[in-house]
Design a protein around this nucleic acid. Structure first.
Lengths: 238, 238
DNA sequence: ACAAAAGTGTTATAAATACACCCATGG
DNA sequence: CCATGGGTGTATTTATAACACTTTTGT
């Protein structure tokens, strides 16, 4: 803690990278950018960029999110700080410490493609091939974290538009977890948790072209689920 | 992503700070160091220090932990990455990005006091007054995270010596959560979770000077708890 | 008429909760 | 013999899981 010579060490660059996730047509999708330069030119990578001197990592992440998606108001979106990746050698050029975030979007706008990236696109999570740097791992961590948070938080509504059906909400769980859920039980669970969702007087039919019109709900005040909604057979089982 | 001039920006310093927690005599205690220099000279702070050019944040945290506690083998201890604190102005001297970790220790060795700190000491969590920088918040985040992980992981055994009684294990939960638990139910829950603890043939009596000698257990193979062991009345209740 | 999706009801099982009670030891 | 902590048993309540069944729409 002594000295504090700003230039005593090789400087660290700090970046904020984003795993922007959405659920569309029953699949989990990620917003990826194609790199235009070496290293990893032509590879897909998570959007992100340097944290500027006056910014916090979260501010930088929000700025990158707005640039990449073209959304005007990004201030209300849930940003989940995942963890920080600081292994030496992550980036061949210099020492980069990356603070990773997960963002959950409802109905995805077509990506802006602005900024430095060659192009930005939504790609299915499963086929999001080998990514640049250690972004495969960051993306996997994001998936795991979001899956876990669905169990004990009301986060799932972040994937939904302002008004949604219980079927859509259930599809969020099923898509992220990769398992089917029993509809009656899911319904009871959600409705019996005070503040998870609240009904909207009026109904629309959305899920498919067919079927009975579903009642609409809005996200409620609650943020946590008690008791939690556990995944059928979690991986960590012994 | 263009240019990559290492010195284009004001450099960021990256530090790894530690919330080292232990349970002693029914209280949650934190390892704190007294600062010898401005700013916050005389204030208590979390131990920590710069991440060196060749280190990851976790490696740096482990190094600091060894220096501060004087423990020889720190490689087996559980280090939990909490989150990264990057708000500008956290440190009045320069731009410091801190990756925070929580460490859980069994029977605490008296702190070494080595390194740059004036002195290091275990202090009760409750009375760990206002700390330097934003360390109050980091410490609170550590407490919250550890409390939450006790619910669905076998982390509690990290607070216990290699061989421990179920009473000691229960005391970890009660101390971290600040609530009393029903002993018979706790016992059943722990023993019915395969791989949480495994019995040691032999018994000792530890908790007080009195009472029936308690059977000893070792930590098992399992890392997660299914179903979880939920806190009686979690805060996020609506 | 049929498929598809929403919504309701019922039952069986498993888990969490709240106790009452006995056992072994130190003072 | 009593306080203290360990350990066992059991009933109640609550939550989960697995279904069968009705309703409303589009084709």
């Amino acid at each position: 803690m002594n000295g504090y010579d700003k230039y005593a060490y090789e400087p660290f660059a700090v970046t904020a990278d984003l795993a922007v996730l959405t659920v569309r047509a029953g699949t989990l999708q990620v917003l990826l950018v194609e790199r235009g330069q070496e290293p990893y030119a032509g590879h897909w990578a998570l959007p992100g960029g340097f944290v500027l001197p006056h910014e916090s990592a979260e501010t930088a992440a929000r700025r990158e999110l707005a640039e990449e998606t073209g959304l005007e108001d990004v201030s209300e979106l849930h940003l989940e700080q995942l963890r920080t990746y600081s292994e030496p050698g992550r980036d061949p050029r210099m020492r980069v410490v990356t603070v990773a975030f997960a963002a959950l979007l409802p109905h995805p706008p077509e990506p802006h493609g602005g900024g430095d990236a060659a192009q930005a696109r939504w790609l299915p999570y499963d086929t999001a091939g080998p990514l640049a740097f250690d972004h495969d791992r960051i993306l996997a961590d994001a998936h795991e974290r979001v899956g876990a948070k669905l169990e004990y938080s009301c986060l799932a509504t972040s994937f939904c538009p302002p008004e949604f059906t219980l079927g859509e909400l259930q599809q969020v769980y099923e898509t992220v977890w990769g398992t089917a859920l029993d509809r009656p039980n899911f319904r009871r669970k959600v409705l019996s948790t005070p503040g998870f969702v609240e009904p909207v007087p009026g109904a629309a039919r959305l899920t498919g072209g067919r079927g009975k019109p579903a009642a609409l709900y809005r996200a409620g005040e609650a943020t946590t689920l008690h008791p939690p909604l556990l995944r059928p057979t979690p991986e960590g089982r012994l």
